[in-house]
Simulated assay, not measured.
Amino acid sequence: MLRRRKPAEPPGLLSNPKPSLTYRLISYLLVFPVYRLLFRGRTLGNAQVPMDGALVVVANHGSHLDPPLLGHALGRPVAFMAKAELFKVPLLGRIIRACGAYPVSRGASDREAIRVATDRLLEGWATGVFIDGTRQANGRVNNPQAGAALLAARAGARLLPVAIINSHRAFGPGNSGLRLLPIHIRIGTPIPPPASRKRADLDLATAACQEQINGLLDQGLIRP
């Protein structure tokens, strides 16, 4: 059985790791123009983002564009899981590591992945989790997994539901190419960590995330 590891101090007191120079350059010189100009990006709800301490960012997943856009829009680095092989690629490995990505070996067990992600949270990172686990053709939360809630329970971290609108239509599964459609991000209200790692508590937190995210998606694009 996995034992819950408690932070040395409450998550709210942990400092947010400072973004590296590489991260800032990528975010503002590459991601910013892609999101804001190419995809006419808008973000609503930044005041809801806790800027310090451990945070599990829970989002729908419609496109490979989602991780960098999400990290940029939230205003603080968001660490995502990445295949260990990518870290061996010259330049790419250094870039994704600087952006907070953490390696997980091919074929690694879910337990190992959870341990690595929990370590990131205990360091004060915001850790990103796509709640369905894979891209969804309709861009919605259809079959949510309990991994995000389990991470939050292990680290005592809040969950932050986020809706990424239209990325599945711009560059989602089955698309033959990139479509320059608006991609907007709506940020929800933080949810307290589950009361325990019991399945009932994890399912309750997972359902709350699903309800918020799909509700934000139903509001559609952000109007000026």
Score class of each variant (00 low, 15 high):
Leu121Val: 15
Val116Cys: 09
Pro144Ala: 09
Asn138Glu: 12
Gly124Asp: 06
Ala113Asn: 10
Thr134Gln: 08
Ile114Met: 14
Thr118Ile: 12
Val116Asp: 07
Ala126Pro: 00
Asp119Val: 14
Val129Cys: 04
Gln145Met: 04
Glu112Ile: 04
Asn142Glu: 15
Gln136Ala: 13
Leu122Trp: 11
Asn143Pro: 09
Val141Cys: 06
Pro144Leu: 11
Arg120Tyr: 14
Gln136Leu: 03
Asp132Leu: 07
Trp125Gly: 12
Val116Lys: 15
Gln136Cys: 10
Ala126Asn: 04
Thr127Phe: 11
Ala146Asn: 05
Gly139Asn: 04
Asp110Cys: 01
Ala149Phe: 02
Phe130Thr: 03
Glu123Arg: 15
Pro144Asp: 09
Val116Gly: 05
Trp125Ile: 10
Glu123Phe: 11
Phe130Asn: 04
Trp125Lys: 10
Arg111Gly: 01
Arg115Tyr: 13
Asn142Leu: 13
Asp110Phe: 07
Gly124Pro: 13
Ala137Pro: 08
Gly124His: 13
Asp110Gln: 10
Gly128Tyr: 05
Asn138Trp: 02
Gly133Arg: 00
Val141Trp: 07
Ala146Pro: 00
Phe130Ile: 01
Gly128Ser: 08
Glu112Trp: 00
Thr134Phe: 10
Glu112Asn: 10
Asn138Cys: 12
Leu121Ala: 14
Ile131Glu: 01
Val141Gln: 05
Ala126Tyr: 01
Arg135Cys: 04
Gly133Thr: 03
Arg111Ile: 10
Ala113Gln: 08
Thr127His: 06
Arg140His: 12
Arg135Pro: 02
Ala117Glu: 14
Gln145Pro: 01
Arg111Asn: 05
Ala117Asp: 13
Arg115Ala: 11
Asn143Glu: 14
Ala146Glu: 07
Asn143Lys: 14
Arg111Thr: 07
Thr134Pro: 03
Arg111Ser: 06
Thr118Cys: 12
Ile114Asp: 06
Ala148Asn: 00
Ile114Lys: 09
Val141Asp: 01
Gly147Ile: 04
Thr118Glu: 15
Gly133Tyr: 02
Arg120His: 15
Val129Lys: 03
Val116Tyr: 13
Gly124Ala: 11
Ala126Asp: 05
Asn138Leu: 04
Asn138Gln: 10
Arg120Gly: 12
Thr127Val: 15
Val141Asn: 03
